[in-house]
Computed example of a mutant assay.
Amino acid sequence: MTVLVTGAAGFIGAYTCQALAARGERVVGLDNYNAYYDPAIKRDRVAALCPGIDIRALDLVDRDGLAALFDEVKPDRVVHLAAQAGVRYSLQNPHAYVASNLDGFVNMLELCRHRGIGHLVYASSSSVYGDSATPPFSEDQRIDKPRSLYAATKAANELMAYTYAQLYELPATGLRFFTVYGPWGRPDMAPLLFARAVLAGREIEVFNQGRMRRDFTHVSDIVSGILGALDHPPAGTVPHRVFNLGNHTPVELEHFIAVIEQAAGQPARRQYRPMQPGDMVETMADTARAKAAFGFEPHTPIETGLPPVVHWCRDYFGDAA
């Protein structure tokens, strides 16, 4: 089978490419290597995790380029992870989210429809729950009160994929990721931001006075869920399903910081701040549906998964942590 992975130089994308190749799939990736964060990290990530994997430089809004790639590669399945990420950045640059997450997503749906793709697995986000749901977040809860444009675009992706499944019988599975972390992670997210700051002796900004809980999910568990979902395409009149992929164990932010302090061997300098626009106080995944459908079972607590992130930051960034 040939699997096309978009966002292949991204954090989850590179690990997904690695896992697919390791089990013998033919993997082709694409990424636009944009400057949302340092593209050098993306290139180093690819070199470390995906040596020998064919990853093309291509943007989701390039319809002709995407069509040519589909015609050349002839993928059987698509794992669509490319998107403009980040809750807070969506408050500053909304047009980037419309271009990548809406226009780009339509381009992928159209190509999957017209090229007869057997299964489209795409990234959604726990952010879609917004103010409508109460923990633990279930896929049956409403997602019509997003707290950011980023969340709104991800909720729109789910509606768009459902429409294509209904109209054209395109098998599609949406995955709502819950705060993914691990070595080679995104430098704009709390695990790396906090780890690097503690290692360098800089202050960390702790929002909502630290009264926050997050369902931190190790990247290895997320990739296991992606592959499980990919191998179990939906059927039925409307072949579309959505699953939570999370750890089902929310962690107090102060405990999260304490684990980083212990791994770094030094205390954090905290600067407490008010709640940020677009943020959520608590996230917690109900993963029963994913477990029933393809055996999803996360195994990595932060006490095991977070220290290697701190050590990786020290090794990769050095004195510039």
Rank of each mutant, 00 (worst) to 15 (best):
G130M: 02
D131W: 10
S132H: 07
S132L: 09
A133C: 05
A133W: 01
T134Q: 14
T134A: 13
P136E: 10
P136D: 05
P136S: 02
F137K: 04
S138G: 07
S138I: 01
E139T: 06
D140H: 12
I143P: 07
D144V: 01
D144S: 07
P146V: 09
P146W: 02
R147H: 11
S148D: 08
S148L: 11
S148H: 06
L149N: 04
Y150A: 07
Y150Q: 00
Y150R: 02
K154V: 01
K154G: 07
A155Y: 10
A156P: 12
A156D: 14
N157G: 14
E158D: 12
L159M: 13
A161W: 01
A161E: 02
Y162F: 12
Y162D: 15
T163A: 12
T163H: 13
Y164S: 00
Q166I: 00
L167V: 04
Y168W: 11
Y168M: 02
T173N: 09
T173K: 03
G174H: 02
G174Q: 00
G174D: 05
L175K: 00
L175R: 00
R176N: 13
F177T: 07
F178Q: 04
F178L: 00
T179L: 12
T179Q: 14
V180D: 02
P183Q: 08
P183R: 05
G185L: 11
P187Y: 06
D188L: 10
P191A: 00
L193Y: 05
F194V: 05
A195L: 01
L199V: 04
L199P: 13
L199H: 12
A200M: 03
G201R: 09
G201H: 07
G201P: 02
G201M: 09
G201A: 01
R202D: 13
R202L: 12
E203T: 10
E203C: 13
E205T: 11
V206I: 15
Q209G: 15
Q209K: 14
M212I: 15
R214A: 03
D215Y: 08
F216G: 06
T217F: 00
V219T: 01
I222L: 13
I222Q: 00
V223E: 00
S224E: 15
G225E: 04
G225Y: 00
L227C: 13
G228E: 06
G228P: 00
A229G: 02
L230Y: 08
L230E: 11
H232F: 00
P234R: 07
A235Q: 08
A235L: 09
G236H: 06
G236M: 01
G236K: 06
T237F: 03
T237N: 13
V238H: 10
V238L: 08
H240F: 15
R241A: 11
R241I: 05
R241K: 12
V242T: 09
F243W: 07
G246T: 08
N247L: 13
N247T: 15
H248Q: 15
P250Y: 03
P250A: 05
V251N: 04
L253F: 14
L253Y: 13
L253R: 04
H255N: 14
F256L: 12
